[in-house]
Nucleic acid binder design. Structure first.
Lengths: 196, 196
DNA sequence: TCTGAATTAGGACAGTTGTCCTAATTTGTC
DNA sequence: GACAAATTAGGACAACTGTCCTAATTCAGA
């Protein structure tokens, strides 16, 4: 593994802190402590806190792309979608403690009326477009985007409720229900054409 | 209308600010300005910011109970549930700007590891239990709680995505889909008994 | 080994935070 | 109208915020 530069290390630690505590609630002092550098040193790498947020979003866009690319190794689009659904299981501890990193960041930036909210929603757009292409590969050309948004929204709802109630059982039940829903979707509609 | 006491007025203005900006991002100065009283005056009514949060949650519990009671005037349980779903439409402007007040408060308090998060989730519990009793009245005795949680989660997912993308079309489409789902639910299962 | 650039630590800075105190004012009751 | 209680304004307080500066250190290339 290549050695991490200081800006990369700052972005990584800030990413975790912004997720676990929120953007506003995380101070420079918190990040400095996590990285192990002095507070005043930040401004050689980032000119403001918003700049760090920008780097964190860029980082999340990159890790999301990498994760989606990894799921592409599975030949079956249905299995790829199941990989997406199962991140709820894989990350269940963090999700029950802090919610979904993408959803909660978007929510916070909306409230702060922060200009970076548009870039944050691009992370959602990555998932949406990737899911839509999987649904399209399953033959759902007409409603690929709708199905993608539905699944994305449902995952968000699960994350919010599981975190609010600390209810792992609900999370697991909903993941199972989403997999059943996926299996029950009509397939091989490739040649079917619906009138406009 | 009875004249509002100062503590009530503080709780009302804080309620709005906590919703629109978040709990942490709202300062005493912000609330003081909204109420029109001096900053130092707070401590005669509330001994800390957490005390104000407590009053805000108490207020939200009360307004939620009142709203649910209002919906009870409709004789048809299915229509009552539709009243719930349609708050997404009624409050769409605020939801697209700030998300769901209940969900976003729970999310923020989770991240802050705040002791009031349990009380905040009680607001969700009010909705869940009320919805469950409506589903039970529709004949879904066995799975009333599950259906309530599903509908609650779906609403939360819609609020998160509609706010992230600023997508009113998605919000409206999902409300319509939830109403269709409700209409398609099997009814009059009152006499049916499933084992155990 | 020398030199210029990159990186660092530590602190100064003005502003804001939640909290608390005191003194003045208003209020309700006799 | 007098008086005790409730309520108010305004500011003090230490701690913390994001930002910025300067001087010391480390590093890379000749």
């Amino acid at each position: 593994m290549a050695k991490q530069t200081t800006p990369e290390l700052i972005a990584e630690k800030a990413d975790t802190l912004f997720y676990e505590r929120g953007f506003e609630a995380t101070s420079f002092a918190d990040i400095a402590k996590a990285v192990g550098i002095s507070r005043g040193n930040f401004y050689h790498h980032f000119k403001s806190k918003d700049d760090i947020l920008d780097a964190v979003i860029t980082r999340r866009l990159a890790t999301t792309r990498a994760m989606l690319a990894g799921w592409e190794e599975d030949a079956d689009p249905a299995q790829r979608i199941i990989s997406f659904v199962r991140i709820l299981i894989v990350n269940r501890s963090k999700i029950m403690a802090y919610g979904c990193p993408v959803g909660t960041l978007n929510t916070e930036l909306s409230k702060l009326d922060h200009s970076a909210q548009n870039r944050a929603s691009d992370i959602f757009a990555l998932f949406r477009d990737w899911l839509a292409s999987q649904f399209a590969a399953l033959g759902h050309r007409q409603d690929a985007q709708d199905l993608a948004m539905q699944l994305l929204a449902r995952s968000q709802g699960v994350a919010v409720m599981a975190s609010a109630f600390g209810d792992e059982g609900f999370l697991r039940a909903e993941v199972a229900a989403m997999e059943s829903w996926l299996a029950a979707l009509p397939k091989n509609l490739t040649t079917k054409r619906q009138g406009h």
